[in-house]
Design a protein around this nucleic acid. Sequence first.
DNA 1: GCCAACGTTGGC
DNA 2: GCCAACGTTGGC
Length: 152
Amino acid sequence: MPGYWLCKSEPDVYSIDDLRRDKVTGWEGVRNYQARNFMRDGMQPGDRVLVYHSNAEPTGVAGIAEVAGAAKADPTQFDPKSEYHDPKSTREAPRWMMRELRFVERFARVVTLEELKACKALGAMAALQKGNRLSVTPVTKAEFDAVVRMAK
DNA sequence: GCCAACGTTGGC
DNA sequence: GCCAACGTTGGC
């Protein structure tokens, strides 16, 4: 049985349209330990991912991706030119991990944050809790299905 | 641009 | 180990 997740991205940086074009992308740049642990330890190939657009107009869930492979070291942590460079990380013991995500679906319309908040079935969804800033959060099957239903 | 909320860092 | 200072996220 697959797991379910929500991953945030600023569409100015990387959007569901970019993922549709690329088909598969390395989900780089996660620099929070809890989010990293979800990516590294929680995600399994085949898990479904709600792709969420933050700092956008509108903000909300824009489509679906799936986890495409094993956790790997995020290469940007070793790149001095990258804004995600981490001089304290080593190749022997990489601090930050990433996953490849494969495009599955772009919703015909964004399910907006306002709609998500108004949906009773999503009252406990981690990404919607007050103060939550994690870019990767777990989602239940019921929550995932509810969001997909709202997109139709 | 503001600001609430939270995470990280580093001095002690 | 505490906690103040600072940085980041992300909605508005």
